[in-house]
């Protein structure tokens, strides 16, 4: 790997090639009203066994980044540029068939709302068995045993009976466990978790996060954790990428991001989420709204809402400045 000039490009860690290296990923939605680019040149990397957070407000393109990485977007959305190198192969170059073998095998994903991501007409067991049969050379009966085993792994009580139930008979937390069970049946090396706890209440949230952390510890599964909840990030993640309007604006270790955030957007994000009395997704303290993706904002995309905006922010796009601690794309970086 060579070091990249893209925003947030993979900072090299000596001697270890990252498990996932996304470089300059671009995803576009085409319609007759024009083309919008919800993911615009995003780069990030994840090392084996690492939990990496991708944070930002809703609409900043973080979910679209995850879906694009999995190649789960379909017309009129399409991945239009960049590289997604996973375990040495560029996923964007694979055939549909090869990509299918990846999904649910080495590379798995869980989602935001466990209510809607399970097929309501299929028994829990059948949905897990489906995943097992696709990726492991076992017979159906063996797969059924493995399915119960997977439920046990995600600490579902009485897994045999839960396996025979339908999704609507389970609580939200249980359903998310089932989705996790489906995702980890084939021991993926990377799990992409798209806001996996957002739809759950707080106690269940903690249980699910503990479970994910445990899976990382015991199976060494790396995770891309997409969230807007900085509290969870602080507690569970190793490194952080901050996204704004389709771009990565800052990256760094959890410690650095929380101790000395460099980008004004990150600072605003921290202020709004960590001050007592505000809800995790309450962004009121950042003035204005994130720009609609159609907007073509000149200069830095954050400048209309930035408290410390400079003149050049309105016209020139800031480059990503990188040092040992991380990277940020802000003109203040150079001035400071």
């Amino acid at each position: 790997m060579t070091s990249s000039t893209h925003a947030g490009g993979g900072a090299e860690v000596a001697g270890s090639e990252p498990l996932l290296n996304v470089v300059g990923l671009q995803t576009q939605i085409r319609s007759d009203r024009g083309t919008i680019t919800p993911v615009d040149g995003v780069s990030f990397h994840i090392k084996a066994g690492e939990i990496v957070a991708l944070v930002g407000e809703s609409g900043c393109g973080k979910s679209m980044t995850a879906l694009s990485t999995m190649r789960l977007v379909s017309s009129p959305v399409s991945v239009t540029g960049g590289q997604v190198v996973f375990e040495g192969t560029d996923l964007l170059g694979l055939s549909d068939r090869q990509m299918r073998r990846m999904r649910g095998g080495r590379l798995a994903m869980i989602f935001q709302d466990p209510m809607t991501f399970l097929n309501p007409l299929m028994k829990v067991a059948d949905q897990i068995v489906e995943a097992i049969l696709l990726h492991q050379p076992v017979k159906r009966r063996e797969a059924e045993k493995l399915a119960v085993e997977a439920l046990r792994r995600v600490r579902i009580p009485a897994p045999e009976s839960v396996a025979e139930r339908f999704p609507h008979q389970l609580s939200g937390g249980m359903r998310q466990r089932v989705l996790i069970a489906i995702a980890i049946t084939s021991n993926p090396s990377l799990l992409i978790a798209d806001e996996p706890t957002t739809a759950l209440d707080v106690t269940v949230q903690a249980q699910i996060m503990h479970l994910l952390a445990d899976i990382r510890r015991t199976a060494g599964t790396a995770m891309l954790f997409i969230t807007h909840d900085l509290g969870l990030v602080a507690e569970y993640c190793d490194r952080v990428y901050v996204m704004y309007s389709g771009r990565v604006v800052e990256e760094g270790s959890v410690f650095d991001i929380f101790a000395k955030p460099r980008h004004p957007y990150t600072r605003a994000l921290l202020r709004s989420t960590l001050s007592p009395g505000t809800k995790a997704d309450d962004f009121v303290s950042i003035q204005g709204h994130p720009p609609a993706a159609f907007d073509r904002i000149a200069g830095c995309r954050f400048h209309p809402r930035c408290p410390s905006v400079l003149d050049r922010c309105r016209t020139e796009e800031p480059p990503t400045r990188r040092d040992a601690a991380g990277a940020a794309a802000c003109w203040l970086e150079g001035a400071a």
């Binding site: 939605i29 009203r33 979910s63 977007v73 009129p76 989602f111």
Partner: peptide, 16 residues
């Protein structure tokens, strides 16, 4: 997820 198809295709269809 919700970013996917709905509104995009509508305008095209209306035109047709």
């Amino acid at each position: 997820m919700t970013l996917l198809s709905p509104s995009m295709r509508t305008s095209l269809r209306l035109l047709k």
